[in-house]
């Protein structure tokens, strides 16, 4: 396990405005490219995998945090 991340702070680097967990991602400028940059930033290591098929399900910041949280703790296996 890695140390708990401050996901809000990390997301804040890419967001274009204030947000909470219910804020729609697009409202704060979080499109697929920035989601991937976030994923790269918080991923546990370079071998971690992103299941891009799940990206389409992310609608609000809360969804994103849950997804990033999963990504941060996997150990190289697919995160399906």
């Amino acid at each position: 396990m890695t140390a708990p991340l401050d996901l809000d702070a990390t997301i804040g680097k890419y967001a274009t405005g204030a947000f909470d967990d219910s804020t729609p991602l697009l409202e704060v400028g979080l499109e697929s490219l920035s989601l991937l940059r976030l994923a790269v930033e918080v991923a546990a290591d370079d071998d971690a995998e992103i299941d891009a098929t799940r990206l389409a399900e992310l609608r609000v910041v809360g969804d994103l945090k849950a997804w990033l949280g999963d990504l941060a703790v996997v150990d190289g296996a697919a995160s399906c």
Binding site: A39, V40, D45, D47, A48, E49, I50, A52
Partner: peptide, 11 residues
């Protein structure tokens, strides 16, 4: 074109 990279390192 849809981005199909899977591993973090591939970005």
């Amino acid at each position: 074109p849809f981005m199909a990279r899977r591993t973090i390192g591939a970005f």
